[in-house]
Design a binder for these strands. Structure first.
Length: 371
RNA sequence: GGUGGGGUGACCGAGUGGCUAAUGGUAGCAGACUGUAAAUCUGCCGGGCUAACGCCCUACGUAGGUUCGAAUCCUACCCCCACCA
């Protein structure tokens, strides 16, 4: 039910096949984020057409609305969303970081003040696992304590050690389940090498795992630091399970991550930028609202095969943003998601045929700007 | 023809002697966004010079006037709206 087959390695880069209850995921792969059970603005059919093989949902958000009991009663997250391919739910650990000011962290768990209605909600490692079990995604994530990229050593250590203690609790609660779902641990440790290595060691001690995630990156730290942490961890990561770099990233980040041994990525930037009118192109990002696109009959990205690029001229997409029609948000989101999914597909081909590294370097060089 | 009201920057619209290159809003332009509190947020928005502080020019219908100083007061004219002839 949970299997990962490594098809080829090229330096640290890998190509593999991850089999989950709802299907197989060819890696490397980008996973669109569907926090509320929807990849914002896109229908399940839209997402399927981007070639996405697996999408995310979020424990915290779905617990608040509509409630995991409602989702479960409707047949689980797959039936609820009509997305019948693999799914992964994030544990709510990231909200410990992003909802700073609305939450209080204690050893037992985290008390959130709902950003929706202000009600108090408690998330513990056990609760996070129970909620995810009710949601019923293929993969559940361990409940972790994420700290900012600039976090001082003591805070990073506290978050890392707590994440390990919580991991033990997640593992135990998960062991009481029926085995229909797997759980992946998350390596923390901020930007500190010794903490990262201790986190990895402690995580592996509590294994074995069917996958392993690296969290707490792209949360404000400089890019070279993220690369250094990935390079530090890579040799110690088990070869036989997929590695998931959480919350990353921009197009170039995918390639840099793949080069450093990462198999799976997720990021809200594709859809958020899409809604905000920024499109990713091979040469860098483009402001779709920009006056330069007025009247343009060119496709958004002539090299892209997505619905948006094969159908609509730039001048029309700009118009949609100018008149604030929701179609514009959807079309650029579709393109950005397809852009990342396709980047994963291309990277996979290049790993399989042995030309990944040169291709990646040329790609990143061409893709100017820090997008 | 008479009476009353009104003409402010691309548009709408404040302002009724100095703190006003002129509140707000819209439109326009640029930027940000990385396990989604985000269809959001930020900046610019008369012209010229400057890396910047800043300096100069033009500007509140038109032309004069009063005043140390006017978008704001006075005079004439032009135009718009309403009502009455």
């Amino acid at each position: 039910m949970f299997d990962f087959t490594l098809e080829r390695t090229l330096g640290s880069a890998r190509a593999g096949s991850l089999t989950l209850p709802h299907g197989t995921v060819r890696t490397p792969a980008f996973m669109p984020v569907g926090t509320h059970g929807v990849v914002r603005g896109l229908s399940a059919a839209d997402v399927r057409r981007t070639g996405a093989q697996i999408i995310l949902g979020n424990t915290y958000h779905l617990h608040i609305r509509p409630g995991e009991d409602v989702v479960q009663a409707m047949g689980g997250l797959h039936r609820f969303t009509t997305w019948d391919r693999p799914m992964l739910t994030d544990s709510g650990g990231f909200q410990v970081f992003s909802l700073e000011g609305l939450r209080r962290i204690e050893e037992d768990g985290v008390t959130f003040q709902s950003h929706v209605d202000g009600t108090t909600r408690m998330l513990t490692p056990e609760r996070a696992m129970e909620i995810q079990r009710a949601l019923g995604a293929d993969v559940a994530m361990a409940f972790d304590h994420v700290v900012p990229g600039q976090a001082p050593y003591d805070l990073a250590r506290e978050g890392m050690e707590r994440t390990l203690r919580w991991l033990e609790r997640c593992r135990r609660r998960h062991a009481q389940g029926d085995g229909a779902q797997t759980v992946w641990p998350i390596v923390q440790g901020g930007t500190y090498d010794d903490l990262r290595l201790r986190s990895l060691e402690g995580t592996l001690e509590r294994g074995p795992w069917t996958g392993i995630a690296i969290g707490g990156l792209s949360v404000g730290e400089p890019k070279p630091v993220m690369h250094r942490v990935l390079e530090l961890l890579e040799p110690g990561l088990p070869r036989e399970v997929p590695r998931y770099l959480m919350g990353v990233g921009f197009p170039a980040d995918l390639l840099e991550g793949i080069a450093r041994g990462v198999d799976l990525f997720d990021c809200v930037a594709a859809t958020r930028n899409g809604r905000h009118g920024t499109a990713w192109l091979p040469g860098g990002r483009l402001n779709v609202r920009g006056a330069a696109l007025k009247g343009s009959t060119e496709p958004l990205d002539p090299e892209c095969d997505c619905e948006t690029c094969t159908t609509y001229p730039r001048g029309y997409l700009r118009h949609l943003f100018v008149v604030e029609d929701i179609l514009g948000l959807r079309l650029v989101s579709i393109h950005n998601v397809r852009f990342l999914v396709r980047l994963g597909e291309q990277a996979r081909e290049r790993v399989l045929d042995g030309t990944f590294d040169g291709w990646r370097q040329a790609w990143v060089r061409r893709h100017r700007g820090n997008s």
